[in-house]
């Protein structure tokens, strides 16, 4: 496995706007970046939470959307050829005797990085857990927040809960293999593609699946194996649905995750940094954007951009101690323009 370790100057955790712009600032200094993100595409909250909402406070852009900001940032950093490792969570961070960092993801990708930059926003996106007593005891055995293999659901009795695209898509897909699918949602309205909603209603009409207006309140079973899901219906009745698996789809929430175990000084779930280089209490690990805290911190995208620029200066000194750091402007430096492939 040793030869498959990816060598990089900087490993950036989080591919949101601030992580992306850090590639630019590090790139100007000839520092190579790899990025890891738990989501399956770059953009972080901008894409996951508000792709279409207008943003008005990016300097020089009177109005943009989360989506367009991310697209433009990706275009801006293209000359620096960043490499993305998506759908992965950085799980381990260990310092080598030479000061560099061994970083491992939950997918088994391994990096050897000179500096690590945590640009993880409010933490990693994880599925929302419904407030059902003892649900943890069933997780992984009969409660799933994602479906990895459709075949695993063949012949099972499923209760699916939620009103978004995931709940609808899985209801439609799993109806073909499951013994029985029951969709439970509090309303007869969905935040999902109208076509999926129409197809779901068709399956209900022809008796293929069941739809219950209500809320899942309790799980019954033993040793992690589910036997039934209790539902409080909107009419006030209590239903007990026999079930082998419960699939709640209530969107994503954000958690600090493994970052909490890396020995960094934290302040209320945010990483404490200095304001000269946005370095953490552990030299060589930086934190920029919403994840960090310092006196006067404002959680703004533009603050994260500034933090990335200053971080890059210090990262350069760590990574290239033998070199002199020349401060240059992109407007006048032909060297920088060559890097940006504009010259």
């Amino acid at each position: 496995m040793h030869d498959s370790i990816i060598e990089t100057d900087a490993l950036i955790i989080g591919a949101g706007p601030v992580g992306l712009f850090a590639v630019f600032e590090l790139g100007l200094l000839d520092l190579k970046c790899h990025l890891v993100d738990v989501l399956d595409k770059p953009g972080g909250q901008c894409i996951e939470f508000y792709p279409e909402k207008p943003i008005y406070d990016i300097p020089g852009l009177p109005e943009c959307t989360g989506q367009s900001l991310i697209e433009n940032l990706q275009r801006q950093i293209l000359p620096f050829e960043p490499e993305f490792h998506l759908g992965q969570l950085v799980s381990q961070l260990v310092q080598r005797p030479d000061g560099r960092w061994d970083v491992t993801t939950d997918a088994g990708t391994q990096f050897n990085a000179g500096v690590v930059i945590v640009a993880a926003g409010s933490g990693c996106f994880t599925p929302r857990r419904p407030p059902i007593d003892k649900i943890e005891a069933f997780e992984g055995r009969s409660v799933f927040y994602a479906v990895r293999r459709i075949e695993a659901m063949r012949g099972r009795r499923l209760v699916i809960s939620g009103g978004g695209d995931s709940a609808l898509d899985w209801t439609l897909n799993l109806a073909r293999v499951a013994e029985r699918v029951t969709l439970v949602h509090r309303r007869d309205q969905f935040r999902a593609a109208p076509d999926s909603v129409r197809k779901m209603h068709e399956l209900v009409a022809d008796g293929t699946i069941d739809f219950v207006l209500g809320e899942c309140r309790a799980l019954e079973g033993a040793d992690g194996n589910l036997s039934s899901v209790q539902v409080a219906t909107n009419e006030g009745a209590e239903l007990r649905l026999p079930a082998d698996c419960f699939l709640p789809f209530f969107g994503l929430t954000m958690k600090l995750g493994p970052i909490a175990d890396w020995g960094l000084n934290l302040d209320e779930n945010r990483i404490a940094v200095d304001t000269e280089a946005f370095e953490t209490s552990v030299p060589g690990i930086f934190a920029i954007g919403d994840i960090n805290t310092y006196p006067g911190k404002l959680k703004l995208i533009l603050s994260g951009f500034h933090e990335g620029a200053l971080m890059a200066q210090k990262a350069f000194r760590i990574l290239r101690p033998e070199k002199r750091l020349l401060f240059q402007y992109t407007t006048t430096s032909t060297q920088l323009q060559k890097k940006l492939k504009t010259a």
Binding site: G163, R186, Q189, R191, E215, F250, G251
Partner: peptide
């Protein structure tokens, strides 16, 4: 109203 549909015990 739509988003509130995603909250529990409404």
């Amino acid at each position: 109203e739509m988003m509130l549909g995603e909250a529990p015990q409404v």
